[in-house]
Nucleic acid binder design. Structure first.
Length: 258
DNA sequence: GGCCAGGCGCGGA
DNA sequence: TCCGCGCATGGC
């Protein structure tokens, strides 16, 4: 099942690269594209087509993307059975994990994550999607304050222009080798990026699964859970994943935890 | 029509 | 360092 062309070994066999455009996912419990794409971590459509087929999921890369890119994007080297096993110790996560079983944390392109989450500040998800889907992530020439305002970025337009200018000087690889604290400090230097957006970029672009962004919804969940339980969950090495299960659960069921 | 949204930057205490 | 406020805009 494991092929030599894999970007990283897939010892657990949940998925396999078939060719330059195709990936097969064999463990259906580990990949729910709806949950992945509608859990508030990403605001546009994926660069692929996805279909269920004879007990497996077939992912076909579209446009200029290939299977290797998608493997990294969906982080298919991570076994979410292991993640869920770890988080199972928290009673409050049982329902959210059952509901969002196939959620995975994406590894989004750095620039896209930065832009998306600056736009997300003090904004709602339908409108974030509407705005982000107008942004051409391949064409930096359109990254002017005027254009961003036209796309509905509002007062965030100036932050976007400044930050995009600054990250041109930044080496993504160097950032990815930094510890959480250093990486966070680097991100906080960018205009429009505060603690919450920095955490989102760390989780959704750098795959720091131990980082849990706290927004208004998660803050309410923390109040509900109580300090002790919340501390235990949000200091766990998969706190970011736990946070995502809770966020998705609250967003779609509009229910309280437990 | 008013409140809210995956917050942030700024000025003043 | 820690408030409180203004901010663009549309969803509900």
């Amino acid at each position: 099942m494991i092929k030599t062309c894999l970007p990283e070994p897939c010892a657990h066999g949940i998925a396999e690269i078939i060719d330059s455009k195709t990936i097969h996912v064999y463990d259906l419990t580990q990949f729910d594209v709806h949950a992945i794409m509608n859990s508030g971590q990403v605001f546009r459509e994926p660069h692929c087509e996805i279909a269920k087929q004879e007990g497996k999921i077939v992912i076909k890369a579209t446009g200029d993307k290939d299977s290797k890119w998608l493997w990294n994007y969906f982080d298919l080297g991570t076994d979410y059975d292991e993640v869920r096993k770890e988080l199972q110790q928290f009673r409050a996560l049982h329902e959210p994990m059952k509901y969002g079983a196939g959620i995975r944390i994406l590894r989004q392109p750095f620039c896209e994550a930065i832009i998306s989450f600056i736009v997300s500040a003090n904004n709602n998800i339908p409108r974030i999607k509407k705005t982000v889907r107008q942004i051409d992530f391949g064409n930096t020439e359109k990254y002017t304050e005027e254009n961003f305002k036209k796309m509905g970025c509002g007062y965030r337009a100036q932050y976007l222009v400044k930050t995009i200018q600054q990250i041109k000087q930044i080496d993504f690889h160097k950032l990815s080798t930094m510890c959480n604290r250093s990486l966070r400090n680097e991100l906080l230097r960018l205009p429009g990026i505060g603690p919450k957006v920095a955490d989102c970029v760390m989780l959704f672009a750098f795959g720091r699964l131990d980082v849990a962004p706290v927004d208004v919804h998660i803050r309410r969940a923390i109040e509900f859970l109580g300090k002790e339980q919340a501390d235990a969950i949000f200091s766990h090495k998969y706190a970011g994943v736990a946070q995502q299960y809770i966020f998705y659960y609250l967003q779609h069921l509009k229910k309280e935890l437990l």
